[in-house]
Simulated scan of single mutants.
Amino acid sequence: MKKVFTFLFFLLTGVFSVQAQVEELEIENNYTVIDSTFLIQEGVASYYGTRFHLRKTANGEVYNMEHLTAAHKNLPFGTMLRVVNLKNEKAVWVRVNDRLPPNSKRVVDLSKGAARELGMIRDGVVRVRLEVPDQETIASLMEYFDENKPDDIRLRLYPVPLEVTRPSIELLEMMMDLPGDLVLSRGK
């Protein structure tokens, strides 16, 4: 009787877990799930072009409006950012080489080449999401800002996800062959 009960328990548990997985997949297919692990900021972006073309940027480089670069209020020069246009989900990687004024309402000012990649030339100003490439960049930004991190920048380190393995059918069958008092005992 205990074997039958144990078998039914594992069978029903397996059915419910499969059903939960199917529901989970349906949810993911109906909605876009954004992995926010590397998201550091959201806000408004604009771009600049011919007026500043071939002038020096804040880090001393000569600005080329066709290169994939950006101006940011606080991020260190050389920081690589993935900028995602929230209107059309187009993305581009840029390198910070210039500064926005401290009182700017924008989070980033892009080169004309980057704006073209994002499909924002016609709009001029769009809502964007800024992401960094990896956890190491987040750690280096935490070190860079130390205790003076701007309030509108999000810096969080995430642990490496654990891999969970479900028991195989063979393991369940082996458990069925064990005496009932071993399967249902709690380590007495």
Rank of each mutant, 00 (worst) to 15 (best):
R116G: 00
K87G: 14
K56H: 08
V132H: 02
F9S: 06
V4W: 15
M174G: 13
I121R: 02
I138G: 10
S36M: 03
S185K: 15
D134I: 00
P101H: 14
L155E: 03
K2N: 09
Y47W: 15
T165N: 13
E131C: 03
L11C: 11
P167W: 03
S36E: 13
V15M: 15
D109A: 08
A91W: 09
A71P: 04
E24L: 07
R122W: 04
V164T: 04
V183K: 07
K90Q: 14
T50S: 15
A91H: 12
K3H: 15
L8T: 02
Q21C: 02
E173S: 06
V33G: 01
S168V: 01
L75Q: 04
L81T: 00
F9G: 04
A58G: 06
Y144F: 15
I34R: 13
V33F: 15
T32M: 14
E170N: 11
N74C: 10
T13S: 14
R51N: 11
A58M: 13
E24I: 00
T6D: 10
K90P: 04
L12W: 11
Y63L: 03
G124T: 04
A91L: 09
L68Q: 08
M174S: 14
D181W: 14
M174P: 03
K56M: 04
D181H: 14
N85F: 07
A70S: 14
V92S: 06
D146P: 00
L86C: 08
P133S: 08
K188Y: 12
E147I: 01
S185T: 09
E66N: 15
R156I: 01
M175P: 03
E23T: 01
K73F: 09
R154F: 07
P101Y: 10
N64M: 02
R51A: 13
W93F: 11
L81G: 02
V15N: 11
G78S: 07
D152G: 02
F52K: 02
F145E: 00
R122C: 01
P102V: 00
D134R: 06
D181M: 09
L172A: 05
S168C: 02
E61Q: 13
V107S: 06
K2I: 00
N74Q: 12
N29P: 05
V62L: 12
K73R: 15
M65Q: 12
E26Y: 12
G113C: 11
G187K: 11
T50E: 09
S46L: 07
N29K: 15
L130I: 01
P102H: 14
I121T: 05
L100S: 02
L141F: 13
D152V: 00
P179F: 04
E136N: 14
E61S: 07
M142Q: 15
G119C: 06
G124C: 01
D151S: 12
E28R: 15
P102N: 13
K105H: 13
T137N: 05
F16C: 05
P159A: 09
Q135I: 04
T50G: 11
S104F: 05
L141T: 01
K2G: 12
R82C: 09
Y63K: 07
L171M: 10
K149N: 09
E66A: 10
L100W: 11
R127V: 00
V44K: 15
